[in-house]
């Protein structure tokens, strides 16, 4: 079994690496929770890249049903075809299209399946997937075919904690909570994105960033992706390093809400 040790573009904490490897060895889905912008989705990409496996992403929306991930039987198309005498209408198999989960099961090699933002879906959604994720197989009654995983995919599930997940589902997962990166880890993350960043700029940016995050009145706290964008803006604009903490130029990149900007203007210094 190959081990995941982080990748070139992804800085993972020791704990996260452990959790990822535990999930892979025990063949259980890895459930990742954390603040938005802590790189939950990126993790799956990094694992896929590090292990050299195909990544299949199943984006969950509020209307997504568990069935969609298994297969879709396109009845309407079949009805349409039958009325106009199209060919192969008898062959139901032709109208059964596999969903993302089915795709991962039938993949020639072991795949990484990312079920992104599972909490967006209906409350019952995770329960409907229990059997499929446990046994790694499902049955298509229309054709009488059973789709069984050739190679057990590595399943990674992310959640923003908008909804509570059912206990029965949680029991089968390995859980990891991505805490917001501390200063040292953030420094490392920034260096991955900007390998030749000016030291003074980095120090000033980090100081301003964590100072803003600490203000309790800020509603939407800036996250990793925002600091990365901010640095780009600062470098592009050629701002004087000494002005960063004092004036916080390009504030709109960090804070996305009017109230938050007002808070900062009032609270700063």
């Amino acid at each position: 079994m190959k081990e995941f040790r982080g990748s070139q573009n992804y800085v993972a904490s020791e704990e996260l690496l452990r959790a990822a490897n535990i999930a892979m060895v025990l063949q259980k889905p890895l459930l990742i929770k954390g603040e938005p912008g802590t790189g939950k989705t990126m993790l799956a990409e990094a694992i896929a890249q590090a292990l050299g496996k195909e990544l299949i992403i199943w984006n969950i929306k509020s209307t997504t049903k568990a069935q969609d991930g298994l297969y879709v039987y396109d009845v309407v198309q079949r009805l349409y075809d039958s009325q106009f005498g199209g060919q192969g209408v008898d062959d139901i198999e032709k109208y059964v299209k596999l969903g993302k989960l089915g795709e991962a099961f039938t993949s020639q090699e072991q795949a990484i399946l990312l079920i992104d933002e599972i909490d967006k879906a209906d409350l019952e959604f995770p329960n409907d997937l229990l059997w499929e994720l446990d046994r790694m197989e499902f049955h298509i009654p229309e054709t009488g075919r059973t789709v069984k995983a050739r190679h057990r995919p590595v399943v990674i599930i992310t959640s923003n904690a908008e909804k509570e997940l059912p206990d029965a589902f949680l029991r089968r997962c390995v859980f990891h909570y991505i805490a917001f990166p501390d200063r040292e880890l953030m420094e490392e993350i920034v260096r991955v994105h900007y390998p030749d960043i000016d030291e003074r700029l980095l120090a000033q940016v980090l100081e301003a960033f964590y100072k803003i995050r600490q203000l309790p009145q800020i509603k939407k706290k800036p996250s990793t992706s925002e600091i990365v964008d901010w640095i780009q803006a600062l470098q592009h604009g050629g701002v004087d390093v000494r002005r960063i903490v004092k004036e916080v130029p390009y504030l709109g990149v960090l804070l996305k809400k009017n109230e938050d900007m007002d808070v900062l203007r009032r609270q700063w210094r």
Partner: peptide
């Protein structure tokens, strides 16, 4: 913690 705890 990974295996026994399911919520932060």
């Amino acid at each position: 913690r990974c295996l026994l705890v399911k919520s932060e």
